[in-house]
Design a binder for these strands. Sequence first.
DNA 1: ACCGAATTAGGACGATCGACCTAATCTCGG
DNA 2: CCGAGATTAGGTCGATCGTCCTAATTCGGT
Lengths: 201, 201
Amino acid sequence: MSRNTTRQEIVAAADDLFYRQGFDHTSYAHIADAVGISRGNFYHHFKTKDEILAAVIEKRVADRVAMMERWEIAGATPEKRILSFIDILTVNGDKIMQYGCPVGTLTSELAKLNHAARGEANRLFGVFRSWLARQFAAAGCEETQADQLAMHLLMRSQGVATLLNASHDTQFAAREIELMREWVGAALAPIGDRARSGKAA
Amino acid sequence: MSRNTTRQEIVAAADDLFYRQGFDHTSYAHIADAVGISRGNFYHHFKTKDEILAAVIEKRVADRVAMMERWEIAGATPEKRILSFIDILTVNGDKIMQYGCPVGTLTSELAKLNHAARGEANRLFGVFRSWLARQFAAAGCEETQADQLAMHLLMRSQGVATLLNASHDTQFAAREIELMREWVGAALAPIGDRARSGKAA
DNA sequence: ACCGAATTAGGACGATCGACCTAATCTCGG
DNA sequence: CCGAGATTAGGTCGATCGTCCTAATTCGGT
């Protein structure tokens, strides 16, 4: 129990610091101080920095999978579930403005460091990609197109996050979020009837 | 002369290393080795790491301003000039896939480091934003809308760069680039006649 | 040819990095 | 209640960080 608690505290603190300061710029000392433990204790739980990174990525994946499961329950239709995804930009607007997207900035940093965990971090995009594609497919899209629409939406959310982080232009973000919502509606409009009848059947 | 040469070599090497490895992860030693000079010589030209960063940002801004001036000359119409911007994604596709967008990744990193040069780095976006807005305005768009269209295009290019860097999915990139080109055409279509007559007048 | 300034080389500094180790403390089943 | 294993604290290691310094070398003007 104590093991789990301390370990989870470390991962949570590392997750937060990696997000706010970046992985490379965050040291053992930073994390240990944030948790309030010694570096030796830290080393007992994670032998290398890469192990912490792996645990943090695992937690981020799990957190997002859990979030999408909540959307799956709360959203009555695929379209509403997709809009839940877009809502992240609104809900986390302030953090994104300060630190960027937790997914995009991590993968970018690991790409530059040419870090071994690159592939694992890209799984973060993968879970969003496949979940969104499943929603588009559930709305009646053919599978290949569903994946393309998922990627398009991911692309727009990444672009908005990057530019909001750089420009701090909240009006821009609000405008683009609205355009994104309209785009979802337009993308699903031609197949709306088919999707509804399929759902009713 | 010699001063300029060495200095320029340092800035060029730093620019390259900051792009490929990130600012924080690149040390004096890295840059000095790349140029083939001693750290002491290095320190003669730049007293602090922040000074190098400022010089690199200045160079990146100048490079991009020069690039846009070339587009201005080569592109007969505003639409063609805007398409030149989109072409960066194709021309630099391989580098973007490896290291991301030089503009977006730098601003993201500096945001996380909460670095003093944050604002300067954001000027990189600013030059693209104002140049693109000028093109849309020249094509007949009202000024406010021209800026919004510029930001929308910047957003899409950033999103594509981030996702291409993460996923290495070149088909996705090619598809989105084509969609971007179509979007430009559609955005300018309603005002095409007005823009042409204005140009002829 | 010569001198002052610009340039270059390379060593040294305190701090901090990731990593490792030992020893003290805590926890809990037998 | 005690001893083994889990947990924690804190010191230490070599490497590297950004920065600073001095001394050697090169260069340009007179």
